[in-house]
Amino acid sequence: MSGRAKRRAFTRRAFLKGIGLGSVGATVLAAPPSKGTRPAAPAGTGRTLGPGAVAITLKVNGVARTLRVEPRVTLLDALRDRLDLTGSKKICDRGECGGCAVLVDGSPVLACMMLAVDARHRAITTVEGLSTGGRLHPVQAAFIEADALQCGFCTPGFVVAAKALLDEVKTPTAEQVREALGGHLCRCGTYPRIVEAVRSAAGRKG
Protein backbone atom coordinates (compact mmCIF):
# COMPACT_ATOMS: atom_id res chain seq x y z
CA MET A 1 0.00 0.00 0.00
CA SER A 2 1.36 3.42 -0.92
CA GLY A 3 1.91 6.13 1.68
CA ARG A 4 -0.85 8.14 0.12
CA ALA A 5 -3.34 5.34 0.46
CA LYS A 6 -2.35 4.80 4.09
CA ARG A 7 -3.09 8.39 4.89
CA ARG A 8 -6.63 7.99 3.61
CA ALA A 9 -7.74 6.74 6.98
CA PHE A 10 -11.39 7.45 6.36
CA THR A 11 -13.03 6.47 3.09
CA ARG A 12 -16.62 6.20 2.06
CA ARG A 13 -16.30 2.46 1.59
CA ALA A 14 -14.58 1.87 4.94
CA PHE A 15 -17.38 3.81 6.58
CA LEU A 16 -20.10 1.80 4.84
CA LYS A 17 -18.36 -1.44 5.76
CA GLY A 18 -18.03 -0.26 9.35
CA ILE A 19 -21.72 0.43 9.83
CA GLY A 20 -22.51 -2.93 8.24
CA LEU A 21 -20.46 -4.87 10.82
CA GLY A 22 -23.24 -5.14 13.37
CA SER A 23 -25.55 -6.89 10.97
CA VAL A 24 -22.79 -9.22 9.74
CA GLY A 25 -22.19 -10.36 13.31
CA ALA A 26 -25.89 -11.00 13.82
CA THR A 27 -26.02 -13.11 10.68
CA VAL A 28 -23.13 -15.24 11.81
CA LEU A 29 -24.69 -15.82 15.22
CA ALA A 30 -28.04 -16.74 13.72
CA ALA A 31 -26.57 -19.27 11.32
CA PRO A 32 -27.05 -22.93 12.32
CA PRO A 33 -23.94 -24.75 13.47
CA SER A 34 -22.04 -26.08 10.51
CA LYS A 35 -21.97 -29.85 10.17
CA GLY A 36 -18.75 -29.95 8.20
CA THR A 37 -18.53 -28.06 5.00
CA ARG A 38 -17.56 -30.76 2.56
CA PRO A 39 -19.84 -33.79 2.41
CA ALA A 40 -17.89 -36.64 0.90
CA ALA A 41 -19.07 -37.56 -2.58
CA PRO A 42 -19.66 -41.24 -3.25
CA ALA A 43 -16.88 -42.74 -5.35
CA GLY A 44 -17.15 -42.15 -9.06
CA THR A 45 -19.58 -39.26 -8.97
CA GLY A 46 -16.97 -36.56 -8.83
CA ARG A 47 -16.35 -33.74 -6.43
CA THR A 48 -18.95 -32.00 -4.32
CA LEU A 49 -18.40 -28.52 -2.94
CA GLY A 50 -20.61 -27.11 -0.21
CA PRO A 51 -23.38 -26.26 0.47
CA GLY A 52 -21.29 -24.69 3.26
CA ALA A 53 -18.30 -22.45 2.67
CA VAL A 54 -15.36 -23.99 0.84
CA ALA A 55 -11.85 -22.70 0.25
CA ILE A 56 -11.25 -21.77 -3.37
CA THR A 57 -8.46 -20.04 -5.21
CA LEU A 58 -9.21 -17.40 -7.80
CA LYS A 59 -6.55 -15.99 -10.08
CA VAL A 60 -7.43 -12.31 -10.16
CA ASN A 61 -5.35 -9.72 -11.99
CA GLY A 62 -2.44 -12.14 -12.07
CA VAL A 63 -2.50 -12.93 -8.34
CA ALA A 64 -3.80 -16.17 -6.81
CA ARG A 65 -6.23 -15.27 -4.04
CA THR A 66 -7.62 -17.87 -1.65
CA LEU A 67 -10.99 -17.27 -0.03
CA ARG A 68 -13.86 -19.20 1.54
CA VAL A 69 -17.21 -18.97 -0.17
CA GLU A 70 -20.42 -20.94 -0.30
CA PRO A 71 -21.09 -22.28 -3.80
CA ARG A 72 -24.04 -19.89 -4.10
CA VAL A 73 -21.76 -16.84 -4.01
CA THR A 74 -21.41 -15.19 -7.41
CA LEU A 75 -18.06 -14.19 -8.82
CA LEU A 76 -19.18 -10.57 -8.53
CA ASP A 77 -19.95 -10.84 -4.82
CA ALA A 78 -16.70 -12.69 -4.21
CA LEU A 79 -14.70 -9.96 -5.97
CA ARG A 80 -16.49 -7.07 -4.32
CA ASP A 81 -17.25 -8.32 -0.83
CA ARG A 82 -14.40 -10.75 -0.16
CA LEU A 83 -11.51 -9.45 -2.24
CA ASP A 84 -12.38 -5.76 -1.96
CA LEU A 85 -12.23 -5.30 -5.73
CA THR A 86 -15.21 -2.98 -6.01
CA GLY A 87 -14.55 -1.75 -9.55
CA SER A 88 -17.02 -4.21 -11.03
CA LYS A 89 -20.43 -2.84 -10.13
CA LYS A 90 -23.51 -4.67 -8.88
CA ILE A 91 -26.38 -2.92 -10.62
CA CYS A 92 -29.11 -5.17 -12.04
CA ASP A 93 -27.61 -8.45 -10.73
CA ARG A 94 -29.46 -10.27 -13.56
CA GLY A 95 -27.13 -10.02 -16.53
CA GLU A 96 -29.04 -7.18 -18.12
CA CYS A 97 -26.81 -4.11 -17.70
CA GLY A 98 -23.12 -5.02 -18.15
CA GLY A 99 -22.00 -3.12 -15.03
CA CYS A 100 -20.28 -6.18 -13.58
CA ALA A 101 -18.30 -7.20 -16.66
CA VAL A 102 -14.88 -8.75 -16.04
CA LEU A 103 -12.56 -10.66 -18.32
CA VAL A 104 -12.34 -14.40 -17.87
CA ASP A 105 -9.46 -15.87 -19.90
CA GLY A 106 -9.50 -12.62 -21.85
CA SER A 107 -13.19 -12.65 -22.81
CA PRO A 108 -15.77 -10.34 -21.25
CA VAL A 109 -18.37 -12.09 -19.09
CA LEU A 110 -20.94 -10.99 -16.53
CA ALA A 111 -19.60 -11.63 -13.04
CA CYS A 112 -23.10 -11.41 -11.53
CA MET A 113 -24.23 -14.45 -13.51
CA MET A 114 -21.24 -16.68 -12.81
CA LEU A 115 -20.61 -18.57 -9.60
CA ALA A 116 -17.29 -17.93 -7.90
CA VAL A 117 -16.71 -21.70 -7.64
CA ASP A 118 -17.21 -21.86 -11.41
CA ALA A 119 -14.42 -19.33 -11.98
CA ARG A 120 -11.67 -21.45 -10.40
CA HIS A 121 -8.81 -22.28 -12.77
CA ARG A 122 -9.60 -19.28 -14.97
CA ALA A 123 -7.69 -16.02 -15.34
CA ILE A 124 -9.90 -13.18 -14.10
CA THR A 125 -9.16 -9.56 -14.95
CA THR A 126 -11.13 -6.75 -13.32
CA VAL A 127 -10.94 -3.07 -14.12
CA GLU A 128 -8.42 -2.76 -11.27
CA GLY A 129 -6.07 -4.99 -13.25
CA LEU A 130 -5.98 -2.87 -16.39
CA SER A 131 -3.57 -0.16 -15.30
CA THR A 132 0.11 -1.06 -14.96
CA GLY A 133 2.49 0.62 -12.57
CA GLY A 134 0.12 3.45 -11.85
CA ARG A 135 -0.30 4.12 -15.57
CA LEU A 136 -3.83 4.03 -16.94
CA HIS A 137 -4.74 1.63 -19.70
CA PRO A 138 -5.21 3.52 -23.01
CA VAL A 139 -8.96 2.86 -22.85
CA GLN A 140 -9.13 4.44 -19.39
CA ALA A 141 -7.10 7.45 -20.50
CA ALA A 142 -9.26 7.84 -23.59
CA PHE A 143 -12.45 7.78 -21.49
CA ILE A 144 -11.11 10.69 -19.46
CA GLU A 145 -9.94 12.63 -22.52
CA ALA A 146 -13.22 12.15 -24.38
CA ASP A 147 -15.24 12.92 -21.24
CA ALA A 148 -17.02 9.62 -21.80
CA LEU A 149 -18.71 9.41 -18.42
CA GLN A 150 -20.98 11.37 -16.18
CA CYS A 151 -21.87 9.51 -13.00
CA GLY A 152 -19.33 6.84 -13.91
CA PHE A 153 -21.14 3.88 -12.38
CA CYS A 154 -21.34 1.90 -15.63
CA THR A 155 -17.84 2.91 -16.74
CA PRO A 156 -15.81 -0.07 -15.40
CA GLY A 157 -17.98 -2.50 -17.37
CA PHE A 158 -17.62 -0.47 -20.55
CA VAL A 159 -13.86 -0.11 -20.07
CA VAL A 160 -13.31 -3.81 -19.51
CA ALA A 161 -15.41 -4.80 -22.54
CA ALA A 162 -13.71 -2.17 -24.69
CA LYS A 163 -10.31 -3.50 -23.67
CA ALA A 164 -11.36 -6.98 -24.80
CA LEU A 165 -12.59 -5.59 -28.12
CA LEU A 166 -9.32 -3.76 -28.79
CA ASP A 167 -7.34 -6.90 -27.94
CA GLU A 168 -9.17 -8.58 -30.79
CA VAL A 169 -9.82 -5.78 -33.29
CA LYS A 170 -7.02 -3.23 -33.49
CA THR A 171 -9.02 -0.43 -35.15
CA PRO A 172 -12.73 -1.15 -34.77
CA THR A 173 -15.39 0.76 -36.69
CA ALA A 174 -18.04 2.67 -34.76
CA GLU A 175 -20.44 -0.16 -35.62
CA GLN A 176 -18.07 -2.77 -34.18
CA VAL A 177 -17.72 -0.74 -30.98
CA ARG A 178 -21.49 -0.42 -30.65
CA GLU A 179 -21.91 -4.17 -31.22
CA ALA A 180 -19.19 -5.11 -28.71
CA LEU A 181 -20.55 -2.75 -26.05
CA GLY A 182 -24.23 -3.41 -26.85
CA GLY A 183 -24.76 -5.30 -23.60
CA HIS A 184 -23.87 -2.26 -21.48
CA LEU A 185 -26.32 0.33 -20.30
CA CYS A 186 -25.40 3.93 -19.45
CA ARG A 187 -28.32 5.79 -17.95
CA CYS A 188 -26.52 9.11 -18.29
CA GLY A 189 -26.53 8.45 -22.04
CA THR A 190 -22.86 9.05 -22.77
CA TYR A 191 -22.85 6.49 -25.57
CA PRO A 192 -21.54 8.75 -28.38
CA ARG A 193 -18.51 9.73 -26.32
CA ILE A 194 -17.90 6.17 -25.25
CA VAL A 195 -17.72 5.11 -28.90
CA GLU A 196 -15.42 8.07 -29.56
CA ALA A 197 -13.19 7.15 -26.61
CA VAL A 198 -12.84 3.51 -27.65
CA ARG A 199 -11.99 4.45 -31.23
CA SER A 200 -9.43 7.02 -30.11
CA ALA A 201 -7.84 4.44 -27.78
CA ALA A 202 -7.41 2.04 -30.71
CA GLY A 203 -3.81 1.60 -31.66
CA ARG A 204 -2.36 3.38 -28.62
CA LYS A 205 0.29 1.58 -26.62
CA GLY A 206 -0.42 0.75 -22.98
Binding site: A41, T45, G46, T48, G50, P71
Partner: peptide, 22 residues
Protein backbone atom coordinates in the same frame (compact mmCIF):
# COMPACT_ATOMS: atom_id res chain seq x y z
CA UNK B 1 -30.30 -17.67 -3.59
CA UNK B 2 -30.72 -20.69 -1.34
CA UNK B 3 -27.65 -22.75 -0.49
CA UNK B 4 -26.84 -25.72 -2.65
CA UNK B 5 -24.16 -28.33 -3.12
CA UNK B 6 -22.00 -27.85 -6.20
CA UNK B 7 -21.27 -31.15 -7.90
CA UNK B 8 -18.56 -31.60 -10.51
CA UNK B 9 -19.06 -34.94 -12.26
CA UNK B 10 -16.18 -36.37 -14.28
CA UNK B 11 -18.42 -37.87 -16.96
CA UNK B 12 -22.00 -38.09 -18.17
CA UNK B 13 -22.78 -41.24 -16.20
CA UNK B 14 -21.79 -39.49 -12.99
CA UNK B 15 -23.79 -36.43 -13.99
CA UNK B 16 -26.98 -38.38 -14.64
CA UNK B 17 -26.44 -40.30 -11.41
CA UNK B 18 -26.01 -37.08 -9.44
CA UNK B 19 -29.18 -35.70 -11.02
CA UNK B 20 -31.12 -38.88 -10.34
CA UNK B 21 -29.94 -38.87 -6.72
CA UNK B 22 -31.13 -35.28 -6.44
Amino acid sequence: MRRFAFIEPPDLAAATEALARG
